Structure formats: structure tokens, C-alpha cells
Measured scan of single mutants.
Amino acid sequence: AKPPKTVTVKVEVTNADGETQTRTVTLTNLPKDLKPGDTVTLPETGQTARIVEITP
């Protein structure tokens, strides 16, 4: 079996106070056609994050 493909992405997350924070997260099994501006759900927090940058 192939190991899951991990991708490092820079995302913007809005916290409970309405502040936008930029975080770098490593995600696995992202859709192939994901692009900056799309939103993903962070598995560890369940927060919705907007992708700023994808590092191949």
C-alpha cells in the first residue's frame, strides 16, 4: 500500500474572537484539484480554514 500523500498548506483560520490567523498545517489525502482560496476542515480542530498557499 502506498503511504498517504501529505501536503503542507498555509491556511487562514478565523478564531472565536473573529481574528484571522495564518497557520501552516500538514494534511493528508487532499483532493487533487485543491487550490488556494478553497476551504478545508482542519481535522484536529474541526475549524474551517481557507487555503492561502499549497507547498507541493
Score class of each variant (00 low, 15 high):
A1M: 13
A1V: 13
A1D: 12
A1H: 13
A1L: 12
A1T: 13
A1F: 10
K2L: 13
P3L: 07
P3E: 10
P3M: 04
P3F: 09
P3Q: 07
P3C: 08
P4H: 12
P4G: 13
P4M: 11
P4A: 13
K5A: 12
K5P: 15
K5V: 13
K5D: 14
K5F: 15
T6H: 12
T6Y: 15
T6W: 15
T6Q: 12
V7R: 05
V7Q: 10
T8L: 10
T8M: 10
T8V: 11
V9N: 00
V9M: 11
V9Y: 11
V9Q: 00
V9A: 06
K10D: 02
K10P: 00
K10S: 04
V11I: 10
V11H: 00
V11T: 01
V11W: 04
V11M: 04
V11D: 00
V11E: 00
E12S: 09
E12A: 08
E12H: 07
E12N: 04
V13N: 01
V13G: 01
V13P: 00
V13D: 01
V13I: 14
V13A: 02
V13R: 01
V13Y: 15
T14W: 12
T14G: 03
T14S: 06
T14E: 06
T14P: 03
N15M: 12
N15A: 08
N15W: 05
N15Y: 08
N15L: 12
N15F: 09
N15G: 12
A16Y: 07
A16Q: 10
A16F: 09
A16C: 08
A16I: 09
D17Q: 12
D17W: 12
D17R: 11
D17E: 11
D17K: 12
D17M: 11
G18E: 02
G18T: 01
G18S: 02
G18I: 01
G18L: 02
G18P: 01
G18N: 03
E19M: 11
E19C: 12
E19D: 08
E19G: 09
E19K: 13
T20F: 07
T20M: 10
T20A: 06
T20L: 10
T20Y: 07
T20P: 05
T20C: 05
Q21W: 15
Q21C: 10
Q21L: 13
Q21Y: 15
Q21V: 15
Q21I: 15
T22Q: 10
T22W: 13
T22F: 15
T22M: 14
T22E: 07
R23A: 05
R23H: 08
R23E: 04
T24P: 01
T24K: 04
V25L: 14
V25Q: 02
V25F: 09
V25K: 01
V25R: 01
T26D: 04
T26G: 03
T26A: 04
L27A: 02
L27W: 08
L27V: 04
L27E: 01
T28V: 12
T28M: 11
T28K: 10
N29A: 08
N29H: 11
N29E: 06
L30T: 10
L30I: 14
L30G: 09
L30S: 09
L30F: 15
L30V: 15
L30A: 14
P31H: 13
P31M: 13
P31Y: 13
P31Q: 13
P31A: 11
P31L: 13
K32I: 13
K32W: 14
K32T: 12
K32G: 13
K32V: 11
K32L: 13
D33W: 14
D33C: 10
D33P: 07
D33H: 12
D33I: 07
L34N: 01
L34Q: 02
K35M: 08
K35Y: 05
K35W: 04
K35Q: 09
K35N: 05
P36Q: 05
P36T: 06
P36V: 15
P36N: 04
P36A: 08
P36C: 06
P36E: 08
G37N: 03
G37D: 02
G37L: 01
G37V: 00
G37T: 01
D38V: 03
D38M: 09
D38H: 03
D38N: 03
D38K: 02
D38Q: 04
T39E: 09
T39L: 14
V40L: 11
V40F: 15
T41R: 09
T41D: 04
T41F: 14
T41Y: 15
T41S: 06
T41H: 08
T41A: 05
L42G: 01
L42A: 01
L42P: 00
L42H: 02
L42K: 00
L42V: 04
P43I: 08
P43C: 09
E44T: 09
E44S: 09
E44A: 09
E44D: 15
E44L: 09
T45F: 05
T45K: 03
T45R: 03
T45P: 02
T45N: 07
T45Q: 03
G46E: 03
G46M: 06
G46D: 04
G46Q: 05
Q47K: 04
Q47R: 04
Q47S: 04
Q47W: 05
Q47E: 15
T48R: 09
T48V: 14
A49I: 05
A49V: 11
R50C: 04
R50M: 11
R50A: 02
R50E: 03
R50L: 12
I51V: 14
I51C: 01
I51S: 00
I51G: 00
I51D: 00
I51R: 00
V52S: 02
V52G: 00
V52N: 01
V52E: 01
V52Q: 03
E53Q: 09
E53D: 06
E53F: 08
E53A: 10
E53S: 13
I54Y: 05
I54P: 01
I54V: 08
I54C: 03
T55C: 11
T55K: 10
T55N: 13
T55V: 15
T55S: 12
P56C: 08
P56K: 08
P56R: 08
P56H: 14
P56Y: 15
P56W: 15
P56D: 14
